[in-house]
Structures are given as C-alpha cells and as structure tokens.
C-alpha cells in the first residue's frame, strides 16, 4: 500500500491520542509534560504533512518551527513551576496538590 497523506494523518492521530492518555492518567507533573510534548509533535506532523501534500509552499514547515520554539519556552516555564511546587509541597503529584479545594 502506497504511503499517502492519510497514513501521516493516522500516525499523528495515534500520537495525539497517546499524548492525551498520558496527560489524563499520569500523576507526576513531569509525566504530564511528556504527554504534552507528544501532542505538540503530533500537531507538527500534521503541519508538515499538509505542507508536503497540499499546494501551500513551505508555510507548514515554518509553522512547525514556530511550534518547536513555543514548546521550548513552555518546557522551561513548566519546569520552573514544577520546581517551585516541589519546594512548597515536597511532591509533584498533580492529584495531591489541592490546597485551594476546601
């Protein structure tokens, strides 16, 4: 079977679903971040696949680059937040940090 646009879209759908599953089920905040990275990669595959199989020039690849830059900024900020949460609560389990709930 020849590889077409559909194959790449299915691949990115599966990657996205695995990322969602990781975000929903994981307790540790860093594992939630890893799920987020999977989702961003899935979106990038979509951008580049449509850039290859549509008549848009290279704009899809450019937006994939922008997404990578945003992912880097997001990872740095999130790690700083996780570090502060660890200093305050001594663990980083997202289901145990519920101080605001009464």
């Amino acid at each position: 079977m020849e590889v077409t646009l559909t194959h790449f879209l299915i691949l990115s759908t599966l990657l996205f679903s695995l990322g969602i599953y990781g975000i929903v089920t994981r307790k540790n905040a860093i594992m939630v971040l890893m799920g987020l990275e999977l989702i961003l990669n899935a979106s990038n595959i979509n951008f580049i696949a449509f850039s290859r199989f549509g008549n848009f020039g290279l704009q899809g690849q450019l937006f994939a680059l922008f997404v990578i830059v945003l992912a880097a900024a997001e990872a740095a900020i999130a790690l700083a937040i996780v570090l502060n949460v660890y200093k305050t609560f001594v663990n980083v389990n997202v289901d145990e940090i519920d101080e605001l709930r009464d």
Binding site: E37, N41, N44, Q61, L65, I68, A72, A75
Partner: peptide, 20 residues
Amino acid sequence: ADFVAIVQLIVYVGGILILL
C-alpha cells in the same frame, strides 16, 4: 522537511529532553 528534522533533534533531544 530536512531543516525541521534537524531542529527537532537539536531542540527536542538536546534541550527539552535534558530539561525534563
């Protein structure tokens, strides 16, 4: 997308993964 692939390796593997 050769350039994006290289950027993916440098930024994700070299930066974000090390940070994680």
